[in-house]
Amino acid sequence: QTQEFDNEEEARKAEKELRKENRRVTVTQENGRWRVTWD
């Protein structure tokens, strides 16, 4: 699953929550947008 964010702060917040659920999370930056991908 993927979700896009406008800034790193929001993306990192989402990453932190997903990691609490023991998910594999990848955060990438593309064209000024932050993308959080998880399984």
Rank of each mutant, 00 (worst) to 15 (best):
R19C: 09
N7P: 00
T2C: 15
R24K: 11
K13H: 12
T26C: 07
V25L: 02
V27L: 07
T2H: 10
Q3Y: 12
E10N: 05
V36F: 01
G32K: 03
Q29N: 13
T37L: 06
F5P: 00
A14V: 14
E8I: 03
R12Q: 04
T2K: 05
Q1D: 10
R24D: 11
K13Q: 12
E17I: 11
W34M: 00
W38P: 05
W34L: 00
A11C: 06
W38N: 04
E9M: 09
E30M: 12
R12I: 05
R23K: 14
L18R: 04
Q1R: 11
E30A: 10
Q1W: 14
E8Y: 06
T28A: 06
L18M: 08
K20I: 09
V25E: 00
W38R: 03
E17W: 07
D6V: 07
F5S: 01
Q1P: 06
R12K: 06
W38F: 09
K13G: 07
T28M: 06
E10Y: 04
T37N: 12
W38L: 12
V25P: 06
F5V: 01
W38K: 02
W34Y: 03
V25C: 03
Q3S: 07
T26H: 09
Q29T: 07
W34K: 00
T37V: 11
K20S: 10
T2S: 13
R19S: 10
T2N: 06
T26L: 07
F5R: 00
R33P: 00
L18E: 02
R19P: 01
N7G: 04
E30W: 06
Q3L: 15
V36K: 00
V25M: 02
R24M: 13
T28I: 11
R24E: 12
K20Q: 12
E21V: 11
Q3G: 03
N31Y: 04
T26Y: 09
E8S: 02
E10V: 03
T26F: 09
W34F: 04
K16T: 12
K20F: 07
W34E: 01
Q29A: 08
V25H: 01
W34T: 01
T2L: 09
R35Q: 12
R24V: 14
T26A: 08
R33M: 11
Q1F: 15
T37E: 15
G32M: 05
N31D: 10
Q29W: 13
Q3T: 08
A11D: 01
R12V: 04
K16H: 12
E4Q: 04
N7I: 05
T2D: 05
R19E: 08
E10R: 03
L18D: 01
K13P: 01
T37Q: 12
V27Y: 00
Q3K: 12
R23E: 08
T26W: 08
N31I: 02
K13T: 11
N31R: 04
N7C: 09
A11Y: 02
W34H: 01
E9Q: 09
T2W: 15
E4G: 03
R23T: 11
V27T: 04
Q3D: 04
W38I: 15
T37D: 14
Q29M: 13
G32S: 03
D39E: 15
N7L: 06
E30T: 09
E9P: 07
K20E: 12
Q29G: 06
W38Y: 12
A14Q: 07
R12W: 05
R24H: 14
R33H: 10
R35A: 06
E30L: 10
V36Q: 01
V27N: 00
E21K: 11
V36M: 03
E10K: 05
R19G: 06
A14R: 15
R24T: 14
V36A: 02
F5A: 01
R12Y: 07
E21I: 13
T26D: 05
A11Q: 02
E10I: 03
V25F: 02
K13N: 11
V27K: 01
R23F: 15
A14F: 15
V27E: 00
V36E: 02
T26I: 12
E15C: 09
V27M: 03
E8T: 01
W34Q: 01
